[in-house]
Simulated assay, not measured.
Amino acid sequence: MTKAKFMIALSLSMAAAVPALAANPMVGGAPMYETKTIVENAVNSADHTTLVAAVKAAGLVETLQGPGPFTVFAPTNAAFGMLPDGTVETLLKPENKAMLTKVLTAHVVAGDWTAAKIAQKARMSRDGLANFTTVSGDALSARMKDGMLYVYDESGTVARVTIADVDQSNGVIHVVDHVLVPK
């Protein structure tokens, strides 16, 4: 065997021995890096500019750059756009910072909850729901239905997870199609 053939055979056998790493999904046209924090990745997503502006206005940037782990159900710009007219603008006013913080932290659960872990927790419950208390102290429930993950808030909003399991250095993001509303 020539040296060149040996090197090719060696590199092929080494490649076969190394498991393939699943790449994080793209979000808002941007790559999401598992080595970056929730905030560091979110600022690059064109679909989350409203969420990023809200996180900044609420003073939650430092918190969401912390060690976590956090699970964030991240509403898209389109989800914020479904709120009644003027809601986002009102929430972003400095005098409404406490209300904005409550809304945003109602999207955050302590821990690293992948879709598979959420589905397993739901399967193990009597009612088929995985129940969580958010950082705001509000309740969220989640379940798998027809192969999709859905999140339910206390106000009756049902958000569908459109992109699951976006790994971050300090947790995981699940992109959702509705803003979750605390009571």
Results as ranks from 00 to 15, higher is better:
residue 24 N to K: 03
residue 127 D to Q: 14
residue 132 F to K: 07
residue 85 D to N: 08
residue 32 M to I: 04
residue 49 T to Y: 00
residue 81 G to I: 03
residue 17 A to G: 11
residue 134 T to W: 06
residue 47 D to N: 07
residue 34 E to M: 12
residue 155 S to I: 07
residue 177 D to M: 06
residue 106 A to G: 13
residue 175 V to E: 00
residue 35 T to H: 08
residue 90 T to I: 09
residue 103 V to H: 08
residue 163 I to S: 01
residue 154 E to T: 13
residue 146 D to A: 15
residue 105 T to H: 05
residue 101 T to F: 10
residue 154 E to K: 12
residue 112 D to G: 08
residue 67 P to F: 15
residue 179 V to W: 00
residue 141 S to T: 04
residue 177 D to W: 00
residue 140 L to Y: 01
residue 118 I to N: 01
residue 116 A to G: 08
residue 30 A to V: 02
residue 93 K to L: 10
residue 82 M to Q: 10
residue 25 P to C: 06
residue 11 S to N: 12
residue 84 P to K: 09
residue 110 A to D: 08
residue 181 V to F: 07
residue 95 E to D: 12
residue 118 I to P: 03
residue 28 G to T: 07
residue 137 G to D: 05
residue 33 Y to N: 13
residue 18 V to M: 15
residue 134 T to G: 05
residue 39 V to N: 00
residue 42 A to V: 01
residue 51 L to P: 01
residue 53 A to P: 03
residue 100 L to H: 04
residue 16 A to M: 14
residue 94 P to W: 11
residue 89 E to W: 10
residue 152 Y to N: 08
residue 124 M to S: 11
residue 15 A to K: 12
residue 170 N to W: 06
residue 131 N to C: 11
residue 76 T to I: 04
residue 53 A to C: 11
residue 15 A to F: 15
residue 55 V to K: 04
residue 158 V to L: 14
residue 74 A to I: 00
residue 8 I to S: 10
residue 114 T to I: 04
residue 86 G to V: 05
residue 140 L to I: 07
residue 1 M to F: 12
residue 108 V to L: 08
residue 37 T to Q: 09
residue 156 G to I: 03
residue 19 P to D: 13
residue 54 A to M: 05
residue 93 K to S: 09
residue 14 M to E: 14
residue 71 T to E: 03
residue 97 K to A: 12
residue 103 V to R: 12
residue 105 T to K: 06
residue 71 T to M: 02
residue 55 V to W: 01
residue 49 T to R: 00
residue 120 Q to P: 09
residue 129 L to N: 05
residue 41 N to F: 08
residue 102 K to H: 12
residue 63 T to K: 11
residue 70 F to C: 02
residue 28 G to L: 01
residue 168 Q to H: 02
residue 30 A to M: 06
residue 23 A to Y: 07
residue 95 E to S: 10
residue 80 F to P: 03
residue 82 M to I: 02
residue 103 V to Y: 02
residue 124 M to P: 04
residue 17 A to R: 13
residue 47 D to S: 12
residue 67 P to I: 15
residue 77 N to W: 02
residue 14 M to Q: 12
residue 52 V to T: 03
residue 154 E to H: 10
residue 71 T to D: 03
residue 88 V to A: 03
residue 20 A to R: 13
residue 93 K to Y: 04
residue 140 L to D: 07
residue 35 T to L: 03
residue 157 T to E: 13
residue 90 T to N: 15
residue 40 E to I: 10
residue 38 I to G: 02
residue 52 V to S: 00
residue 13 S to N: 13
residue 64 L to Y: 03
residue 110 A to C: 08
residue 121 K to F: 07
residue 109 V to Q: 01
residue 16 A to Y: 11
residue 104 L to T: 00
residue 123 R to K: 15
residue 18 V to A: 12
residue 123 R to E: 14
residue 24 N to A: 09
residue 182 P to L: 15
residue 115 A to M: 11
residue 12 L to P: 09
residue 155 S to A: 15
residue 89 E to T: 07
residue 114 T to F: 11
residue 43 V to Y: 05
residue 163 I to K: 02
residue 1 M to C: 14
residue 105 T to E: 06
residue 86 G to H: 04
residue 139 A to D: 10
residue 11 S to D: 11
residue 113 W to D: 02
residue 19 P to Y: 14
residue 48 H to Q: 01
residue 32 M to C: 01
residue 31 P to G: 10
residue 45 S to P: 02
